[in-house]
Design a protein around this nucleic acid. Structure first.
Lengths: 325, 325
DNA sequence: CCCCCTTATGTAAGCGCTTACATTCTTCCA
DNA sequence: TGGAAGAATGTAAGCGCTTACATAAGGGGG
């Protein structure tokens, strides 16, 4: 594997000159440039990314991890923030591994004084986006994607997971499967919803969905509504684990047993899911990986590597526990 | 930004020992391990990825770039292979930048003697996949994705681009917009098809699609069929540039002018697109970036970094030229 | 003709980590 | 109780690149 030294030797110059040619920096005569490019072509050399990064990294970049005020409040209040807490923690760790120094900020108020930004969650709407675009600094969205918008983002694809889980229930012989979901303006929830629909259609079953808008207070009435208008389903698939837990709590109050009377499947695999009674069957979202990928991507963006926008979707994993058949 | 040396100092050991603790290798007493972990926690240290990669990289990995026999034949025959040629070239360059040594192979016959594999194109079907899974070596798919399959892949999302292009035509006042497409078993073409459908639906227009199965010989009859059953549309959106070029050629033969009589939009932005007469309006697929991302991903996989599967979708860019309004 | 500025190139010191090798300290059995 | 084997730790040489600094050569104004 050729190194810069091989090129230097071949071209009869020093490694410094080769580096200058490659980076198009400093003074190099045209004649020398040509000789170096020839040597590079001839030997088939490409500089190693890791060595460049290491050598260049005198400066550590300052980045802002941005959450919304809403999320911040929720995360103080109760377990809703669990999900984002894990993501933030992962970003924190990973960003220093990428040579970036992170600070936690609110996306509504953060100033244009960082080298890059990571925006977490669906509250990063078009307005917020506009603000960040106008700052002319690289940023990546985590756990959110706005169809039609060209932005770097890291998401966990709900479609595949939802499709898999619902298909699993169908394969077990269940037919009356309900989806209780969050508002669909967030792509994450939308894709889970779509996956549910696709699986039901593929199984030749009638889908039935109920939406809640306030996860903290809405669940009793949603469950009530479902029981009144639809009766007891064979299974309930929810947008996320918190919703699943709330639903199960409501069912328990009414003496309905999980999973004997009805299977419940959540989404996310938050820490609670495993210790809840019954332990929750769910789809694991790899929150750590999301953070790591976000940092890597932002680092690339800041350094100008692979600047073309991408959407990175993590696959989820079905975790079978006791809350479902 | 803390380094391994800071930890060593804090814990009162050498950097070698810290490294051993981090990598859980060699001999370290429990007592020392504990001290080191404490120091790491206290200082908030995370090892820099690039330094590790550089230091570890004594060995260069051998990888195989795999295409199908079909693609290989096509690429010799004419411009159909243009697309894949660019991708392969990019992978070649980029893989050596990642410290990997690439060889070009056929996916049907390649042996299990490489450290990793890059499979290009939609011919990597479930059978091929099974073979590669059984080899127990990391691999990534390029320009292909099989819904429901958990595999690392790099794709160019056709949905957004198609949606954008068709919406553009609609915004210009066109209503009779036809999609001429390749077989839909390949995800790439399927997503372009879906994007077309979505845009038409959103615009309240009747979609009309025609499928060809042999891009080299089918086009005259497809165009013939379209003109007979549908008449002359306002615009034709095709699955890819080659198809667009063939379609335009057919139209020209009949004295139909592009774009005066009908707009044509392709997909891919192959080299030909710009020099064709008329220059093709199209959606640029960032083929170079696909190669780069594939190599980065494979390198990570081989080194065991971020081992959880992801799907990376590149956005496309609308390139307005003369073949359309 | 000398000085200084600009251009062109080389030298070598890191960047932060891993690891081969050297060294020291324990065991424990002949 | 000597010493060999094994365990624990340290030393220092890289990995492949960038870049500050040193050096050298050409060129124009006083």
């Amino acid at each position: 594997m050729p190194t810069i030294e091989d090129i230097a030797k071949e071209a009869g110059v020093s490694t410094a000159t080769v580096s200058r040619v490659i980076n198009n920096s400093g003074y190099v005569s045209e004649r020398t440039k040509l000789r170096v490019w020839h040597a590079i072509k001839k030997i088939g050399y490409t500089p190693k990314e890791s060595a460049r990064v290491l050598a260049k990294h005198k400066k550590t970049y300052r980045i802002a991890i941005c959450i919304s005020e809403r999320i911040q409040k929720l995360s103080q209040q109760d377990n809703v923030g669990q999900f984002y807490g894990v993501v933030v923690e992962s970003i924190r760790r990973s960003s220093t591994a990428c040579g970036m120094y992170p600070e936690l900020k609110l996306m509504e108020t953060v100033e244009n004084e960082y080298d890059g930004y990571i925006l977490i969650g669906a509250d990063a709407d078009l307005n917020i986006l506009k603000k960040f675009r106008s700052m002319k600094k690289p940023f990546v969205l985590v756990d959110h994607y706005i169809p039609g918008q060209v932005i770097d983002c890291i998401i966990s694809d709900g479609y595949d997971g939802a499709y898999y889980a619902v298909s699993y229930l169908i394969k077990k012989g269940l037919t009356r499967i309900v989806h209780i979901h969050a508002p669909l303006n967030a792509y994450g929830f939308r894709s889970r919803y779509d996956g549910y629909l696709a699986a039901m259609e593929h199984g030749g079953l009638m889908p039935k969905t109920y939406e809640y808008d306030d996860i903290a207070n809405n669940m009793p009435s949603v469950v009530e509504m479902m029981l009144r208008t639809y009766g007891l389903p064979h299974a309930i698939f929810t947008s996320n684990d918190i919703a699943a837990i709330r639903v199960i709590t409501e069912l328990k109050k009414r003496g309905i047993r999980v999973p004997e009377d009805v299977s419940v499947i959540g989404f996310d695999d938050i820490a609670w899911a495993e210790t809840f009674d019954p332990p929750l069957t769910t789809l694991r979202v790899f929150k750590d990986e999301m953070g790591v990928l976000a940092c890597n991507r932002l680092r690339d963006l800041i350094m100008g590597i692979n600047p073309h926008p991408v959407r990175i979707s993590l696959f989820t994993r079905f975790i079978k526990r006791k809350s479902s058949i």
